[in-house]
């Protein structure tokens, strides 16, 4: 199809502004971070010294960096998997758990599941501070106290703290994916579902052989979103963890270390190097996921 005369100019004029804004506020800072990663900038001088790849050499022998990377690895495995399984389960129940209509009041449940998504991260932080409070004043420990169990240091035990933080991230994310999957399931044509039911397909089989394949695109997107979320975690860790990333660095994540190196230690150059590493990690993940999960699309 040929564009009408003047059409190209018309389209470009509409696209120019968003592209300029994107370049200024996204591309330019990225480029700047790449440059800063090669300097020893401390945030004050106008002309930082160029130090080549020294920041990266230090970075690769920095145990805190590797600890944070390990935590991202755990997050990357656990967060999408657990979130997707729970969200799929809820969405399936809401939509076709009971007949094709879903359970009674499914719309209400959908709204309730979505609540955490509406809350600001700071609110969630404060909420879980009360949940996880390490003495009997905490919600969880208060309940345990009723059955005579000593308070548990949810966030003060180095082996437990990260898992408790992952639980918060999952709790926060599930609602969004329930709604996303529910919408995806609702758009699956009735004929296919009815045909399967007529053929005597069980609910479990229906889920694995009809719903899941038809939801593949949505799942793929969800996986990438959650994977990218697994490279963040800054706010929750910053608000909830002991000593910001503790105890003993057992909950630290890269964005937190970037923040600390830049704004507490004034090592902006080094922080930028960490930022570049994080950028490479997330980009690699996104590309790999999209590649590996590529499948033939089912048109309906």
């Amino acid at each position: 199809m040929r564009m009408p005369r003047g059409g190209a100019r018309f389209v470009i004029s509409f696209l120019a502004l968003p592209i300029i804004i994107y370049v200024i506020f996204v591309i330019a800072p990225y480029l700047q971070a790449f440059y800063l990663a090669l300097t020893d900038w401390k945030g004050i001088t106008a002309s930082p010294k160029f130090v080549g790849f020294k920041n990266f050499e230090v970075l690769f022998s920095d145990s805190v960096f590797w600890k944070a990377v390990l935590h991202h690895g755990i997050l990357l495995l656990v967060l999408p998997l657990v979130t997707l399984i729970i969200a799929l389960f809820f969405a399936f129940l809401l939509n076709m758990g009971a007949g094709t209509k879903g359970v009674r009041g499914s719309r209400f449940y959908q709204a309730v599941f979505f609540f955490p998504q509406v809350l600001a991260v700071a609110v969630i932080g404060v909420l879980f501070q009360a949940m996880y409070r390490p003495d009997k004043g905490g919600v969880l420990n208060g309940l345990l106290d009723l059955v005579g169990v000593e308070p548990i240091g949810w966030l003060t035990k180095p082996n437990l703290a990260l898992w408790m933080l992952i639980a918060v991230l999952v709790w926060q994310a599930v609602g969004f994916y329930v709604v996303l999957f529910a919408a995806g399931m609702a758009s699956i044509p009735k004929e296919i579902v009815e045909a399967a039911q007529l053929d005597g397909c069980s609910k479990g089989r229906m889920f694995f052989q009809v719903t899941l394949p038809l939801l593949w695109d949505t799942m793929q997107v969800a996986w990438v979103y959650l994977g990218i979320a697994a490279f963040d975690g800054f706010a929750i860790v910053q608000v909830l963890s002991v000593d910001r990333g503790g105890p003993d660095g057992s909950t630290t994540v890269l964005p937190l270390e970037i923040w600390r190196n830049a704004f507490t230690f004034s090592k902006y150059g080094y922080a930028s190097a960490m930022g570049v590493a994080l950028f490479v990690l997330s980009l690699t993940f996104a590309v790999l996921t999209l590649r590996v999960t590529r499948r033939e699309r089912i048109e309906y």
Partner: peptide
């Protein structure tokens, strides 16, 4: 307070911004 940054400069200049 920002450092001299040729890549950023040229990008911005190219846009006249």
């Amino acid at each position: 307070a920002l450092p001299q940054n040729p890549s950023r400069r040229s990008v911005l200049k190219g846009l006249g911004m």
